[in-house]
Design a binder for these strands. Structure first.
Length: 771
DNA sequence: TACCAGAGGAG
DNA sequence: AAATCCTCTGGTA
């Protein structure tokens, strides 16, 4: 048994050598493959013989073979061009493409090691769970005398380390006298870097995890290594950490020892107001993590004694501990995705869902002798991006409070449409069918005889998931149960991204027609469902994409509601094709609907379910979100609207008094573009620009946490990043009139309350009160 | 008051 | 570097 951790290649004697890093029972084993040669394909315009002749004469070409491959569902002859070195692929692809006989160059953009994994059928991370991998987390604290640390000057103060075999360390140039068993004081920065590297080697660490190591810890460590004239030798046989460009960000690659940065993983997996280590830790374990403000670190370090100084070391240790704990919770899903998609875990953990689906498709295409489509050029990408299409249908809700609400939804609506209607580029408007059954309202139809490529791949994912879920039901052992659960989650993630992939302008298998057909069929089914529900005596309250909220007016018996729901589902499902199914999703004794995508429900246990309202949004102050939730509870659970009104009046008073803590007033908003690119910068951008001048670092992707203070004219003028605001310095008027009241009044208006009443101005007489 | 840019949610 | 639909805010004219 062995598990593939990493794959790369090197050049030896002018020839490429694939290096496969396996973890075995004994340790890490490198397998070298010397007989795999890089290649790519070319398709010919007309006569391929002339093209073949010309390519053969090119420098660096080893051989040219004709092959039969499937291209757009047609079998055709293509030329496979084998070259000496991976770099020859990139240099020759242009030359070949420029030949007048050449139509297209294909599959010339796959990284060589990934090409090998696809061709050889090797699965990364197989048996990872049985291999008892050694995982270590690593984190650093650095000196920062002037706000942001400068890697060319400011030294590393501590390196913290925690592994899943129980070793915990903070190596530092101070702190040996603190009596903390994990602190080891060393003589110099160089010594602590070296100690860290030696420990990774000695402990036989397989996987290194960090929290934002890609963009902070590793680049900084590398810079400090250069300063100290040492190599950041963390890889197999002392290979140096390598920084790679990955889109907007960096990736820190370690040869043979995958580095998984939990920060991008968490951003993909969770939806949180902020993604600092403590936020994610709280989300996963519901425990507060100790924190020290970056601005305080320099002072605490220089003081060099006392409780704060000790706490600094405890904080550093807890960073490594919590990173490890997060990794232990989330790595199994990363391993599973890596296996299904067949990308090594370093790459897979950094790829977005579109890339993952695409890699899976490339692998499946190779398997079926299908020629992989090229990535779109920038021009085609822009063209595709410019044309959007009609998506899902949303029912305008019957606004206000409702009792006894029934929720039905389609199980995996889009995946089931794709498989049931066989939606694919290769099956669209085929010549062999009349197009009766598999027809979309967009006018296109899909072949009823030959199964398309994407429906086949998707069908296999769905089928595998059904199998895993069956096993899961039978399994008793908790460890195996959680493994199976991770497996089904990974399959679900991939299956659910297939529809989005069709409409993704950068996709190789892009098809606006397919995406459009899927969405149109979705609309057709939800419309039909609504119509049938009405015919069966249900009142339609709301619906979005694949769901309908219904009620039976005048029926109070839960038993009768359930019975009629069951009967309705049974009849409706008997009329649905293929894999499609409408399911009973829930019963809610009470709910309030505000607008499309904004509503709240109370389930039978009295639990509140809020959608789209401020409570669910990161860009509203906590005090508002808390109050709105209390109001909803008073209204839906306790049916006490006077209590709801009192809650609001009380909070208005507290805000006015000026002693609401800043953390409850903070607003979180993301910087979604370059700070200079804004046509109309919002308060968060103005706050970030001000903070930038005062030494804080802000860039695209960061989330700004700010307060509307009392100083300034416009709201933007008043916005300041929370770090620079003193307790009590907030604009009470703004928080009452622009935050609290709009959020709660949307709900309380259903009960005829007015804003002035909430502000303690008494109920104003309106025209209505005379009627 | 109407409109736009920007953000973040739902499914 | 998965799609579209939708609401809401703050700024501007």
């Amino acid at each position: 048994m062995k598990t593939l951790l990493d794959a790369s290649y090197t050049i030896r004697d002018d020839k490429p050598v694939i290096r496969l890093f396996y973890k075995t029972k004994k340790g890490v084993d490198v397998e070298e493959v010397t007989d795999f040669q890089p290649y790519f394909y070319a398709t010919a315009r007309g006569d391929w013989k002339e093209l073949e002749k010309k390519i053969r004469s090119m420098e660096g070409v080893v051989s040219v073979d004709g092959r039969e491959m499937i291209d757009h569902e047609i079998e055709r002859r293509v030329l496979r061009i084998t070259v000496k070195q991976p770099r020859d692929v990139s240099s020759l692809r242009g030359e070949v493409k420029d030949l007048e006989e050449c139509e297209e160059v294909r599959e010339a953009d796959l990284p060589f090691a990934q090409r090998y994994l696809i061709d050889s059928g090797i699965t990364p991370m197989e048996y990872a769970e049985e291999m008892d991998l050694r995982v270590a987390s690593f984190d650093m604290e650095v000196y920062n005398p002037e706000g942001e640390p400068r890697p060319e000057k400011d030294p590393i103060l501590m390196v913290s380390y925690s592994d899943n075999k129980g070793l915990r360390r903070v190596w530092s140039t101070k702190g040996g006298n603190l009596g903390l068993e994990y602190v080891v004081e060393l003589s110099s920065e160089k010594a602590l870097i070296k100690k860290f590297m030696e420990t990774v080697e000695e402990r036989g660490i397989d996987i290194i995890v960090t929290y934002n190591g890609d963009n902070f810890d590793f680049p900084y460590l590398k810079d400090r290594c250069s300063f100290n004239r040492i190599t950041p030798a963390l890889g197999f046989n002392g290979a140096a950490v390598k920084m790679e460009r990955r889109g907007m960000n960096f990736g820190a690659r370690i040869r043979g020892r995958p580095h998984v940065d939990m920060f991008p993983v968490c951003r993909q997996l969770f939806n949180l107001p902020r993604y600092r280590l403590e936020d994610v830790y709280f989300e996963l374990f519901n425990e507060e993590k100790i924190d020290i403000k970056a601005g305080e670190m320099r002072r605490i370090w220089d003081t060099g004694e006392g409780e704060e100084f000790k706490a600094f070391f405890e904080y550093s240790m807890s960073d490594a501990d919590s990173t490890l704990k997060i990794a232990e919770a989330l790595l199994p899903l990363q391993y599973e995705l890596s296996r299904i998609v067949r990308l090594p875990v370093y790459e897979c953990s950094r790829t977005a869902s579109g890339q993952r689906v695409e890699h899976l498709l490339i692998r499946e295409a190779h398997h079926r002798n299908i020629l992989v489509p090229n990535k779109p050029s920038d021009r085609i990408f822009e063209e595709r991006k410019g044309k959007s299409y009609t998506g899902a249908y949303v029912v305008d809700p019957v606004k206000g409070v409702h009792d006894n609400i029934i929720l039905f939804d389609f199980r995996s609506l889009y995946p089931s449409i794709i498989t049931s209607y066989n939606i694919d580029c290769s099956t669209i408007d085929c010549d062999c069918c009349s197009g009766e059954k598999h027809r979309s309202p967009t006018g296109h139809y899909f072949c009823e005889k030959r199964k398309g490529f994407i429906p086949t791949v998707l069908g296999a994912l769905v089928e595998r998931r059904v199998g895993v879920k069956k096993e899961l039901m039978k399994e008793k052992d908790p460890a195996r149960k959680s493994l199976l659960d991770v497996k089904q989650q990974a399959l679900k993630l991939l299956a659910n991204s297939m529809y989005g992939y069709f409409g993704f302008p950068r996709a190789r298998w892009y098809s606006r027609e397919c995406a459009e057909a899927i969405a149109a069929l979705g609309r057709q089914y939800i419309h039909e469902t609504i119509g049938k529900a009405r015919k069966s005596g249900f009142k339609v309250i709301y619906g979005d994409t694949d769901s309908v909220y219904l009620k039976l007016e005048g029926v109070d018996s839960r038993e009768e509601i359930m019975e009629r729901s069951g009967a309705f589902l049974k009849r409706l499902n008997s009329e649905l094709p293929g894999d499609m199914e409408l399911e009973f999703e829930g019963f809610y004794p009470r709910g309030i609907f505000i607008t499309k995508k904004r509503y709240a429900l109370m389930d039978e246990h009295g639990m509140l379910l809020v959608k789209g309202l401020e409570t669910r949004r990161r860009d509203w102050a906590d005090i508002v979100k808390e109050t709105q939730e209390k109001v909803l509870n008073a209204l839906l659970r306790e049916k006490d609207h006077e209590k709801a009104a009192d809650i609001v009046k009380d909070v208005v008073e507290r805000i006015k008094e000026g002693n609401v803590p800043l953390e409850k007033l903070a607003i979180n908003t993301q910087i979604t573009r370059g700070l200079g690119e804004y046509v109309q910068p919002g308060p968060h951008i103005i706050a970030a620009r001000k903070a930038l001048k005062e030494g804080l670092d802000f860039k695209q992707g960061n989330i700004v946490t700010y307060i509307i203070t009392r100083r300034g004219d416009s709201i933007s003028d008043k916005a300041r990043v929370i770090d620079f605001v003193k307790e009590g310095d907030y604009d009470a008027d703004y928080y009452i009139n622009n935050q609290l009241l709009p959020a709660v009044m949307r709900i309380l208006e259903a009960f005829d309350y007015t804003e002035d009443e909430m502000k303690g101005l008494g109920k104003q007489l309106t025209l209505d009160s005379f009627n």
